[in-house]
Nucleic acid binder design. Structure first.
Lengths: 221, 221
DNA sequence: CCTAAACGCTACGCTACCATAGCGTAGCGA
DNA sequence: TCGCTACGCTATGGTAGCGTAGCGTTTAGG
């Protein structure tokens, strides 16, 4: 599993004319098409069936790409799964309203929405499960996780550097305290994640960082 | 899948002499031995390999009980998995120190310890994953989950009935806010769960329920 | 137009696993 | 001692999935 993406090393790369950004340049159009189709289908299948129910044959059936072709681009089922799973990274932009509370609220509300609707949310338990035993997947899992926590961590550390929160406060603890409850509701208690809930969670964490005066007063239904 | 436990309906039950508590009375000693061996092994295997890696053949190999015998007691692989997984229920006693904060802290500290050490903690992701798609497992998952949250819910509702916390506070939200961060650390961020962390989490939630005056002052390393 | 790369298709070997059948053996209880 | 029950062992049928081989067809690109 050395390199990054699995695919066979550049087949010919004669015409390096097309300057395309990073990787997908100078590659045969057919290769691109196959890859993209397979990867899309693979991600869909992963969302439906989880890592356990993921089979190469099924990907071939759905995508219309022959199984042999798939194996020409990925050395094994595992490589394909990892490649597909890596698409989960939810790159979201980081808000900066000046208020830590509203920044955090925005991020969590968005995350809550994603957890409720995004297809990848049903894949995550699979990844977590496999990562529990397979170090390769543990890497993928860690990357996805860090990706999800990143915006939150960023606004918190920014607030800390601005001296807005107690220096004794541990950013990692705050991230856990903020994201944990949302994850819990999505995958464990299976309760809905509404705005009210998000507000409550945020207030719990933020209010312990600065003296609060108006504990519960948000009746905008 | 109808009844509770799968096993064949009472084989003979002639001598109902032995008054043994609920179920295991009047059953052939050999049956008991087989069942117990299989179930123990099944749980071990489940902890190691997860639901996905669980095979009847392996259980037979390890337990020394013949595969045919296993199928005499459980109608299918799935039934055995469910039976083994149901052993997770962590029945713990509910403290009552008079202080909500110390009750909650005790429960969370214990839970954190279990998450770090108990074998079943590595099975949970499997259950969550399968429950995502299989309603049967969703039931098991729900039961386990409620079991884990029960003590917490109990002390919180007790405190509420005693008027110790705001009536506006939602016990479900509090449970999510308390357990979520611990689960997050165990299965997502994979950070350790120490007493300091537990204290922080508890303070976040509790302090937003009663006017706090000493926000962050716990420097016992 | 011509070459070479990429693709599709069919078939295959292999392994792992589920679930069952048949038959002989051991042990519990009257 | 005798019978019933549980158990072990071996074999078997069947499915599903991984990964590969061979061969013909399409298509990009000079």
């Amino acid at each position: 599993m050395g390199k990054g993406t699995p695919g066979r090393a550049q087949p010919s790369r004669r015409s390096a004319a097309a300057p395309g950004a990073g990787d997908a340049a100078g590659v045969d159009a057919r290769v691109q098409r196959s890859r993209s189709r397979v990867l899309t289908t693979a991600f869909d299948l992963l969302s439906e069936s989880g890592v356990g129910g993921f089979t190469v044959d099924e990907v071939a059936r759905r995508s219309g790409v022959a199984k042999t072709t798939i194996y020409r681009h990925w050395p094994s089922r595992e490589a394909l799964v990892i490649d597909a799973a890596s698409r989960i990274s939810a790159e979201q932009e980081v808000p900066d309203t000046g208020s830590l509370e509203s920044d955090v609220t925005a991020i969590l509300a968005n995350l809550g929405h994603l957890l409720s609707t995004a297809r990848w949310s049903s894949v995550v338990p699979s990844i977590v499960d496999v990562a529990e035993r397979d170090p390769e997947f543990a890497g993928v899992h860690g990357k996805i996780q860090r990706g999800h926590a990143a915006p939150l961590r960023e606004v918190i550390e920014r607030a800390a550097s601005r001296g807005l929160i107690s220096a004794a406060a541990d950013p990692s603890s705050m991230v856990s305290a903020l994201i944990g409850p949302l994850y819990y509701r999505r995958w464990f208690s299976r309760e809905p994640i509404d705005d009210q809930f998000v507000k409550t969670i945020v207030r719990n964490v933020i209010s312990s960082q600065r003296a609060t005066d108006d504990p519960v007063r948000d009746t905008r239904t």
